[in-house]
């Protein structure tokens, strides 16, 4: 048996706990979505999406642990780098109107 199957409390395993935590992170992401939609400035939106991206990376990593699929971490890795790229690209775009692209 692996660590993920170990019981934490009341029949819930570490995997269950991690899944619940992932759900928690998603709920936080939904909260953050308000800022992405509301703005008011473009930078606010980019910022919110950047935070959402970091959250998604954590969610992906937690899913990898909870579902015992370590290869999912590769997706998280790709996402972490893309997320950074997106934030830089959009914030550069808002200032230079495509000067960087």
């Amino acid at each position: 048996m692996t660590l993920v199957d170990a019981t934490v409390v009341a029949g819930y395993t570490v995997g269950d706990f991690l899944l619940l935590a992932a759900a928690g992170f998603v709920v936080l992401a939904i909260g953050m979505l308000y800022r992405a939609v509301k703005g008011p400035t473009m930078q606010d939106r980019v910022l919110a999406v950047n935070v959402l991206g970091t959250n998604t990376v954590v969610i992906l990593a937690i899913l990898a642990a909870a579902l015992s699929e370590p290869t999912f971490l590769d997706i998280a890795l790709v996402y972490a780098l893309l997320n950074f790229l997106m934030a830089i690209a959009i914030s550069k775009f808002t200032v230079e109107r495509g000067g960087v692209l």
């Binding site: 910022l47 990376v57 590769d74 972490a80 950074f84 934030a87």
Partner: peptide, 26 residues
Amino acid sequence: AGFKSVLLLFFIFVTNPTAAHAISRA
């Protein structure tokens, strides 16, 4: 694949402040 997780941690610690800087600078 714990080392990937550590790698991720490293990336996040480097890229997040840089992204925040880029956004606030914009």
